[in-house]
Design a protein around this nucleic acid. Structure first.
Length: 280
DNA sequence: TAGGAAAATTGCCTGAGGGC
DNA sequence: GCCCTCAGGCAATTTTCCTA
């Protein structure tokens, strides 16, 4: 199965880094261009002596894939059309190594947000992230997880915070049921956990903490349109905050050096109450 | 090329310190 | 005492690199 890892373009021509999963599950990378005319868009030094042959080369590591891309020294000057969400942070880093960081930052921000509805490729890509599990199946899983968590806490005396992996997962089911959406294609999908029926990507943070905060990775935060913070207290799940990601990030502490945000549960609660008041 | 070790990433929790 | 800020640590998973 082929996946577009990075698609760059300009004036109708494209340069793509393609990933292909073999039967062994391993991903291999190669370069694909829409036409030979692309070389006209690149500087003289970018042109490869045998670009056709070059594009046939398949490599198995990300580092080597980057080397393939570097065969086009001005690749980063092209406009990003599509970025695979799982590779957003790596691509961001790759752009960061280039001199003109302001350009790359804005480009990445523009394209890596799945709500960029003007881009058909991105929409298609989000669709491929959807998990085909039906709502009924999610409901069934939710009930099973809920029973398991109750069993752990009430029968075995385990702290709710100790079953965080179960709470994190049930939070995703809860969110999917609340918004009538679908789960992301796999567990630990980077950046978001649920895709709403309107195509919005939602990052779900479920915690059993009473106070404290939830961490949001700065490298993947821009992949989610919305945030749903769920708290498990007294055997129940409650939505602390559900809304756009941006105001949540504005309310969170930012640690640029650690590439992460920390959103206090109290701040999220305040944000939700402001939102509710604004609706009145 | 395969297997294993090391490093990186992500999500989450705990606790110290300070202000109210 | 409670809340907030901040630092640090743990566990699981993924990726990269090295070696045989």
């Amino acid at each position: 199965m082929q996946e577009v890892i990075l698609k760059l373009g300009g004036e109708g021509e494209t340069l793509s880094l393609i990933g292909t999963r073999g039967t062994d599950g391993l991903r291999k990378y190669h370069i694909q261009t829409s036409s030979e005319a692309l070389s006209e868009l690149l500087s003289e030094s970018d042109r490869l002596p045998s670009s056709k042959q070059q594009r046939q080369i398949k490599v198995s590591s990300w580092k080597k894939a980057c080397d393939l891309l570097e065969q086009y020294p001005s690749w980063y000057k092209l406009h990003p059309i599509d970025i695979h969400p799982d590779f957003a942070s790596k691509i961001h880093k790759l752009f960061s190594t280039k001199n003109d960081s302001s350009i790359h930052h804005n480009k990445i921000k523009d394209i890596s947000r799945p709500d960029n509805t003007s881009n058909t490729d991105t929409k298609l890509h989000v669709n491929t992230q959807l998990n085909s599990i039906s709502i009924d199946k999610i409901k069934e899983l939710y009930e099973q997880y809920y029973a398991l968590i109750k069993l752990e806490i009430e029968e075995f005396g385990v702290k709710a915070t100790e079953v965080r992996h179960l709470i994190g997962r049930i939070g995703e089911f809860y969110c999917a049921l609340k918004v009538g959406g679908a789960l992301a294609s796999r567990a630990n999908q980077h950046g978001f956990d649920v895709i709403s029926k309107h195509g919005k990507t939602i990052s779900v943070k479920a915690t059993a903490q009473v106070n404290g905060f939830v961490a949001i990775s700065a490298s993947t935060a821009n992949l989610a349109d919305e945030l749903m913070l769920i708290q498990y207290t007294a055997g129940k799940l409650n939505i602390v905050y559900y809304g756009p990601m941006e105001p949540a990030l504005d309310s969170a502490r930012h640690y640029p050096e650690k590439m992460k945000f920390e959103l206090d549960i109290g701040s999220a609660r305040k944000l939700e109450s402001y939102k509710s008041k604004a609706r009145l």
